[in-house]
Write a protein that binds this DNA or RNA. Structure first.
Lengths: 208, 208
DNA sequence: TCAATAGTGTCTGTTAGACATTATGGA
DNA sequence: TCCATAATGTCTAACAGACACTATTGA
């Protein structure tokens, strides 16, 4: 997450002659490794470590793509979506690129980004992904922003906090953070207490 | 769907000597084809046609597995979940096997079934999967059974119908079907009218 | 007439969203 | 003091689930 937007780790290609020069900026590539003997989940985990110096706070397979060209010449691309907290600095010549302002990517890599973002959105109400985007301690405003980012819509503040409180997912700390003008916000920690209480009601409205 | 339960198309292996004889019944294999030049979605679509003689009413990629042995010796298995209406007869030596009573499968194929079922359950409220399990015309009781099967829980009849009516997803036909004793049930057709009306509220309760 | 199943009407507790108000800091 | 932001209390409309009831068939 960068400036309130989802961001992806990209490595900008070395300018290898005029061939790789493309209108709209330098080309980028996503973290990639060939399929070896180890499980691909382990490979993905290592790629996160190499690119950020820390472990992902959430990771899952998103899709497997076969259509479109890939820079490394692979015939098949297993896509993983991994999450690290906001503010994690990139390492090893990589950089964060907001998903709304990606550098030019190979067609298949652009699809990979779409699939990864889609899988975050699809799974966010089955896994605490929003919390994984935040540091250990956060304000409720920050948490709501993370949810709004993943849901791609505005939420009602009072409703959001009521539902959060009734789910007993966060624990207040004694610290407050002052951010410019207004009243300081209390810092919270993710500390789930309940176990799968209510079941979600059937929702027909989302069906085509 | 067979007898109110999800079922998978399996081909029972020929008894090739005592080696393949396994306690618990003959071994089975899932529909499979090697990765060729065509997109795997197209391969999956063809496999459904070969196994059922008709096109899938819904299909999507579920997972890509690398761990565990696979009968055809593949190093990697791209799993697709496809749906056909209840009552579709198997073809070409295949048979329907209820997911609760599968024949012995290779470890990776057992995982494939789990992944396919999980992807149906995960996506059912974003795609009209329950309707795809039913024939063109169905009773509301049958529809509710399909939903209960996918949700793995009982639903309240009046609530189910109220929500369905307000979503304007089905259209009544003039036909009724008498099934044994009681009052005949009216037949309905899937005929969605609304387009993404209400948004689903944030659900914290499902998060660990 | 009885039994069994389909379909509905009504009530109630819960809750999402709107609105207003208080709390607490900086300028 | 004013302003900006956090946090919270109250009201209301919507709705899920419970229950009871009517409707319509076969036995």
């Amino acid at each position: 997450m960068v400036e309130g937007e989802l961001a992806v780790l990209v490595r900008h290609e070395e300018g290898s002659g005029s061939r790789s020069a493309v209108r709209g900026g330098t080309r980028g590539t996503l973290p990639f490794a060939g399929l070896g003997t180890e499980p691909p989940l382990q490979t993905a985990t290592s790629l996160v470590r190499e690119g950020t110096g820390r472990s992902a706070t959430w990771i899952a397979q998103s899709a497997t793509l076969t259509e479109g060209a890939h820079p490394a010449g692979a015939t098949l691309l297993i896509v993983y979506a991994a999450v690290v907290p906001v503010g994690t600095p990139p390492r090893g010549g990589s950089a964060w690129a907001k998903v709304s302002a990606l550098p030019p990517l190979a067609p298949r890599e652009a699809k990979a980004v779409d699939a990864a973002v889609a899988s975050l959105r699809d799974r966010m109400d089955l896994a605490p992904i929003a919390f994984r985007l935040l540091p250990d301690r956060f304000t409720l405003g920050e948490l709501q922003e993370a949810y709004e980012l993943l849901l791609d819509r505005r939420l009602h503040k009072a409703s959001f906090r009521r539902a959060l409180a009734s789910a007993a997912l966060v624990e207040a700390t004694d610290d407050w953070r002052s951010e410019g003008r207004g009243r300081p916000a209390q810092l919270f920690r993710y500390s789930p207490r309940r176990r799968r209480g209510t079941r979600r009601p059937v929702r027909f409205e989302l069906l085509a």
